[in-house]
Computed example of a mutant assay.
Amino acid sequence: MLSDPPVAHARYTFGAWRSSISIPPEADFMPDSTTILVLGAGELGMAVLRSLAGRAKHSPGTTVSVLLRPSSIDSADPHKRRDIDELRSLGIGLLPADLAIASTADLSALFERFHTVVGCTGFVTGGGFQLKVARAVLDAGVRRYVPWQFGVDYDVIGRGSAQELFDEQLEVRDLLRSQDRTGWIIISTGMFTSFLFEPSFGVVDLALDTVHALGGWDNAVTVTTPEDIGALTAEILFEEPPIINQVIYTAGDVITYGRLAEVVELVLGRKVPRKPWSVSELREELAKDPGNPIKKYRVVFAEGRGVSWDMSKTFNARRGIEVVDVERWARGNLK
């Protein structure tokens, strides 16, 4: 097992972090040494970390660390222990901190020793969180930031959508674009491929033996698997010449709901009933249950703005990188 980089030995307090952490010589932070910090190690974070660790092995001077809650690092849960053991085996440093409760100043003090910060946290902490992290990154003088924007094209969707958290994503973009000290890369991936088949989302509902179309059968959606997002993120970060201050698009597939229904029938080997959900119908359902995040997402995707893009404009298509499409995913995962 490889030993953790020095950041793994920080205590779980913020005020004393400078005196409690082992800081390598200043030479280790010269421009030719890239220190990468990933925020979070959920499904996407783990995929990104695995790919970054693989690339770091072939990039002298590059180190990869991950910021995790102390309770996650010390957890006795077998699944979390498995992930922590894997991270350590990959040579990834473990930096203990709680993003949800830390102040902007606390986070800035943690971030300032890193060249690149990659956000993989999602929306789990609610409103204000992504802006707090972005401000901390800028205050720390981080040289490159990949915010949590692994999803739809928020610029096209615009403000005032059914999912109010999307407005904050636009505020993060405005903040990054308003300055020139920290470079940024926004990676738009569409939804996770698996989410199309998530029972709670209801698009492919095998329990009810039905495929629903959000807004109509000709509506399209862009999807990418977390594993492909991880691999493509690593490629984007190590691209030469460096990518900076750009929105980069990826796609494992760009698929209409009509084609999705065909794929489900092809893989299952039988006909599956189809039912469209109109925008008006989904808005009515949301009005009855306005706090339901799934119903908010259904409306956004049914409206069809900023949720799909041409495959030819994607990073993976331009680079000829193989990715997993919906049919391949379904053949490997549907029962």
Rank of each mutant, 00 (worst) to 15 (best):
L37H: 09
D32G: 10
T121K: 09
S280I: 12
F129A: 13
G291S: 10
P31I: 02
A41W: 03
D218F: 08
G127N: 05
G93P: 08
A102S: 14
D32H: 11
E284S: 12
G128L: 08
I243T: 02
S19L: 14
T34L: 05
L2Y: 15
A231N: 00
Q179S: 12
L39Y: 03
G269C: 06
D32M: 07
P6V: 08
A76W: 07
G320N: 03
Q149W: 05
L170C: 13
G215K: 10
T104Q: 07
I21L: 14
A330Y: 08
A136D: 03
Q246F: 03
T125E: 11
G160L: 06
E168K: 14
A8H: 14
L208E: 15
T104D: 01
L90N: 06
I21P: 07
Q149E: 07
S20E: 12
Y249Q: 04
T250V: 05
V142M: 00
F197G: 03
A53I: 04
I243F: 01
Y249A: 03
P241Q: 01
Y12T: 15
L68C: 13
S65P: 10
A41E: 01
R135Y: 04
D74Q: 14
K132T: 07
L39D: 00
D28Q: 15
R88E: 05
G61P: 15
N219H: 10
L138T: 07
S308N: 11
S194K: 04
L260Q: 06
Y154T: 12
Q163P: 05
V211H: 00
I92R: 01
V203H: 00
P6I: 08
D83N: 15
S33Y: 11
R135H: 08
R274C: 11
V7P: 09
P147L: 00
V48R: 00
G291L: 12
T225R: 01
R328L: 03
C120M: 05
W309A: 04
D28M: 14
P78T: 04
S280D: 14
Q149M: 10
R319I: 11
A140Q: 06
F111C: 13
L208Y: 09
P78C: 03
G45Y: 00
F123W: 10
N333T: 14
D218S: 11
T182K: 06
R283H: 13
L268A: 06
R55V: 09
G93K: 13
G93L: 11
T116K: 02
D167P: 10
G15K: 15
I36M: 03
F111N: 08
A134L: 06
G54H: 09
G258I: 04
S103I: 15
I73A: 11
A136V: 09
T182R: 06
G320P: 05
S22L: 14
A231V: 04
G91V: 06
V323H: 01
R259D: 05
N292C: 04
S59M: 10
L2E: 12
D310N: 15
V221K: 04
Q246I: 06
L232G: 00
A207H: 12
V124N: 14
L90Y: 14
